[in-house]
Simulated scan of single mutants.
Amino acid sequence: MSERPAILGGEPIRPQGPPEWPPRNPAIRDALLSAWQDGSWGRYDGRHCRELIEQLAEHHQTEHVILCSSGTVAVELALRGVGVGSGDDVLLAAYDFKANFQNVLTIGANPLLHDIRHDDWQFDVQSLECIEMPQSTAVLVSHLHGGVVDMPALRRWADRQKIKVIEDACQMPGAQLFGRTAGTWGDVGVISFGGSKTLSAGRGGAVLTNDATIAQRTRLYTQRGNNAYPLSELQAAVLLPQLRSLDHNRQRRLDNANTLRESFATSSGLRAFKLKADCEPDYYKLGIQYDPETFGGLSRDRFSAAMRAEGIAMDPGFRSLHRIHSRRRFRTVGDLPEADRADTNVLVLHHPVLLEDNAALQEIISATERIREFAGEIAK
């Protein structure tokens, strides 16, 4: 029985389950205690937020940083900052975080969905080269699950079309993409400090831009006698020590993700999103393309349930936007075959385990091999 998958009654490979997040970081404890002792935790405008703005600006080499209450709010502010308004078209990938679609609708604009690449299921820039977008105001792209949008190509296309670029780097703040930091290729970038993110404050986000007009438009929208979408001093206090260790942790996640990528490549059925040259991404999630046929027809969701039973946080990805919204709410640029495939076959491995040792990586590999062996029985 011990060799059988946990979902079939065997002993789980990782009985302690996934690592907790956020971790019990002594530097965060010290920041909380210091904020309590000096009373800064309850101030409207204090040193922690100012220092966080300075550190984020330096880390991203950007002139303007606007802190806010969530990554979702940051995307809305970015849309408003570039001048998107009622009736405008906003181009985005058909496979993306649901809130980005809803933000476009919130300001009265129209989502225009485009397909994704076959090798990493990111926004497909190359197929835009022969397309004219005279009515579009902005393109909103996300780097998802360790995958990277081809930002140099997108930048060239958008400049020719005179379309603003919003770069959603909520899943990989600080990553190095084509010689720049993620979030700085666009006219405006956004990052998130949500509770499960690699920089975590429970909630929170930031807007990044070098365009003074975008920054001013954003600030005018948020200031209503006070800041309508604030990040608190206490949140900023706990983010500062995490930001100082971000590059070190990112490199460890990258190394461990590459180890898993190489391991998956030796067996069929699981393929990590393709790693682009000249990029050092980060991994809030490690994206995996799942092939059910090589697992005896076992569905992606059933495979995920079996991995969860083993104590591994490998879950289904997002639903594709055109599959979960009424056709009246959006238009498409061509067909969406890759987004259809992603809808049922994206797997994501949550990032905390990528900070652990090789033994933890081997547990992931062993769990996938065990499930493969018993896939037919699990499917029944």
Rank of each mutant, 00 (worst) to 15 (best):
H118R: 07
H118L: 03
D119G: 00
D119Q: 08
W121G: 01
Q122E: 13
Q122L: 12
F123Q: 04
V125K: 02
Q126A: 15
L128C: 13
E129M: 11
M133D: 00
P134N: 01
P134E: 07
S136L: 02
S136E: 03
S136A: 15
S136H: 00
T137W: 00
V139H: 01
V139A: 06
V139E: 00
V139Q: 00
V139W: 02
L140P: 10
V141A: 14
S142M: 04
L144E: 06
L144V: 10
L144G: 02
G146N: 04
G146L: 05
D150I: 00
M151K: 01
M151W: 14
M151S: 11
P152S: 08
P152I: 08
L154R: 03
R155N: 13
W157E: 02
A158K: 03
D159R: 13
R160D: 09
Q161T: 01
Q161H: 07
K162W: 00
I163T: 04
K164F: 07
V165G: 02
V165F: 03
E167R: 09
E167M: 11
E167W: 06
A169T: 11
A169C: 10
A169N: 07
C170D: 14
Q171D: 15
A175R: 02
L177F: 09
L177Y: 06
F178D: 14
F178E: 12
G179H: 05
G179Y: 05
T181M: 08
A182L: 07
A182E: 07
G183K: 04
T184E: 10
T184G: 10
G186L: 09
D187K: 00
G189M: 09
G189H: 08
G189L: 07
G189K: 06
I191P: 07
S192I: 08
S192G: 11
G194T: 03
S196G: 10
L199G: 09
L199E: 12
A201P: 04
A201D: 06
G202W: 10
R203E: 15
G204E: 05
G204W: 02
L208K: 03
L208W: 09
L208C: 08
T209F: 04
T209D: 09
D211L: 02
A212Q: 11
A212Y: 00
T213N: 13
T213D: 15
I214E: 06
A215Q: 04
A215H: 08
A215L: 03
Q216N: 12
R219T: 11
L220C: 07
Y221E: 12
T222I: 15
G225D: 09
G225W: 06
N226I: 13
A228E: 13
Y229V: 15
L231V: 13
S232L: 11
L234I: 14
L234D: 01
Q235S: 15
A236D: 06
A236M: 04
A236Y: 01
V238E: 05
L240W: 03
Q242G: 03
Q242E: 11
L243C: 12
L243R: 09
L243V: 11
R244T: 12
R244K: 13
L246S: 08
D247M: 08
H248Y: 07
H248F: 06
N249Y: 08
R252W: 05
R253K: 10
R253T: 14
R253V: 06
N256C: 05
N256K: 05
